[in-house]
Simulated scan of single mutants.
Amino acid sequence: MSNIVLVSGANQGIGYEIAKQLSQMSDYHVFLGSRDLDKGKTAATQIQEIGGSVEAIQLDVTDRKSLSAVRQYIETKFERLDVLVSNAAILLDPKVSPEYSLGQATQDTFATNTSGAADLAGEFVPLLKRSRLPRMVFVSSGYASLHFFANFTPSYTTAKFFTPAYACSKAALNMLMLHYNVQYGNKGWKINACCPGFTKTNFSNHDEQAGPAQESAQIAVKLATLNEDGETGTFVNTKGQIAW
C-alpha cells in the first residue's frame, strides 16, 4: 500500500464518507477510527462490500491509551502513516441550560474538538515523519472564521445552529493546524483545514436544507490526496479560501 490513512470519528457522517471515498481509491488503505468499535466494524463492513480497502479500529481522541494503542498497531503493521484526517468532533451547544453552562459546554467541547485533535496529531507525527509525503487534514467549520462573526449577518443556518462553544473549538483547531504547518509545512508536508459545509448529518439533525455528506466529504478527500505541488497552511471549502 502506498498511502496509509487514519480518519478519526469515521463510523458515520462526513468521517464515514471521507473514509469510504479514500478507501475506494487505488493504493489507499484506510483505518476507520471509531470510539465504538462495533459501530466502526459495521461501517467498515459496508465499505468493504463495495470494494473499499478499509479496516475499523477503536479510537477515542480523548483517551491517550486508545491513541497509543492505535499508533502501535499501525506502526507494527505498516511502520508509517501517510495521511491523518482529524475529523472527530462533538456538538454540545444545544444542551446549554441553567444547569449546563456555556462555559462547561465549551470546556467539554474543547476536550474532543481541540485537545483531542492535538493529542491525535501529536501521537501520529512520528509515523507521519516516515512518509514520503505526509498530509494532515483538520476538518474545521466555517463557524471558525472570526471574519464571519465580525461581520455577522443572520441566515437560516446561523440563526438555527448558532453554536459558540463549537465555533470557539474550531477556531482553536485552525490555530492548531497552523502550528503544525509552521513546524512542517516548509519540509514538504501538506497541512490544511477545511469546512465541509452545512451537511445532512446528526449534527444538523439531518436538516432538509443541508447538503449530502457524499459531497461535503470531497474537500477533505481532495486535501488528503494532494501531491507535492499541493497547498499547505490553508483554510478552505469547495469554493476556495475562507477568511480567517
Results as ranks from 00 to 15, higher is better:
residue 234 T to Y: 13
residue 131 S to F: 05
residue 232 T to W: 02
residue 13 G to Q: 06
residue 77 K to Q: 12
residue 239 K to A: 14
residue 73 Y to N: 01
residue 205 N to P: 04
residue 144 A to D: 03
residue 71 R to F: 08
residue 193 A to L: 05
residue 134 P to S: 08
residue 216 S to T: 07
residue 44 A to R: 00
residue 84 L to Q: 07
residue 179 H to R: 13
residue 70 V to T: 10
residue 106 T to Y: 06
residue 14 I to Y: 07
residue 95 K to P: 00
residue 61 V to F: 08
residue 89 A to G: 14
residue 182 V to R: 14
residue 91 L to T: 03
residue 32 L to T: 01
residue 98 P to E: 15
residue 244 W to S: 10
residue 196 P to L: 13
residue 85 V to E: 05
residue 39 K to H: 11
residue 225 T to V: 15
residue 105 A to S: 15
residue 166 Y to P: 00
residue 190 K to I: 08
residue 233 G to V: 10
residue 153 T to N: 07
residue 27 D to E: 15
residue 9 G to W: 00
residue 191 I to L: 03
residue 78 F to T: 03
residue 174 N to C: 15
residue 165 A to C: 13
residue 153 T to M: 09
residue 103 G to C: 11
residue 135 R to F: 07
residue 14 I to D: 04
residue 51 G to H: 10
residue 152 F to E: 11
residue 163 T to Y: 09
residue 164 P to Q: 10
residue 22 L to T: 00
residue 49 E to Q: 14
residue 11 N to T: 11
residue 28 Y to W: 12
residue 171 A to G: 09
residue 52 G to A: 09
residue 202 N to T: 15
residue 205 N to I: 01
residue 183 Q to Y: 04
residue 184 Y to I: 00
residue 227 N to A: 10
residue 46 Q to M: 14
residue 123 E to Y: 03
residue 119 D to E: 06
residue 157 T to C: 10
residue 194 C to E: 07
residue 216 S to I: 03
residue 134 P to D: 04
residue 90 I to G: 07
residue 148 F to V: 06
residue 204 S to N: 12
residue 202 N to Y: 12
residue 69 A to W: 04
residue 92 L to W: 02
residue 112 T to M: 08
residue 33 G to W: 01
residue 145 S to Y: 01
residue 154 P to R: 14
residue 205 N to E: 14
residue 12 Q to L: 11
residue 68 S to E: 02
residue 104 Q to C: 06
residue 165 A to W: 00
residue 52 G to P: 11
residue 180 Y to P: 00
residue 22 L to F: 05
residue 115 S to Q: 03
residue 101 S to T: 15
residue 80 R to G: 03
residue 200 K to S: 15
residue 107 Q to M: 13
residue 103 G to H: 13
residue 31 F to C: 07
residue 194 C to L: 11
residue 214 Q to T: 14
residue 139 V to E: 01
residue 225 T to A: 13
residue 118 A to W: 11
residue 201 T to Y: 07
residue 184 Y to P: 03
residue 103 G to S: 12
residue 222 K to W: 09
residue 33 G to V: 10
residue 117 A to M: 10
residue 211 G to V: 04
residue 103 G to T: 14
residue 171 A to V: 11
residue 49 E to H: 12
residue 194 C to T: 05
residue 218 Q to Y: 06
residue 37 L to R: 07
residue 4 I to N: 01
residue 127 L to G: 02
residue 19 A to N: 02
residue 79 E to N: 09
residue 61 V to M: 07
residue 228 E to N: 11
residue 83 V to A: 13
residue 211 G to W: 01
residue 113 N to G: 05
residue 45 T to P: 00
residue 167 A to E: 01
residue 63 D to P: 05
residue 44 A to H: 02
residue 211 G to L: 06
residue 170 K to Y: 05
residue 101 S to D: 12
residue 200 K to E: 13
residue 18 I to D: 01
residue 9 G to Y: 05
residue 237 N to F: 04
residue 93 D to V: 00
residue 45 T to E: 12
residue 60 D to T: 09
residue 59 L to D: 02
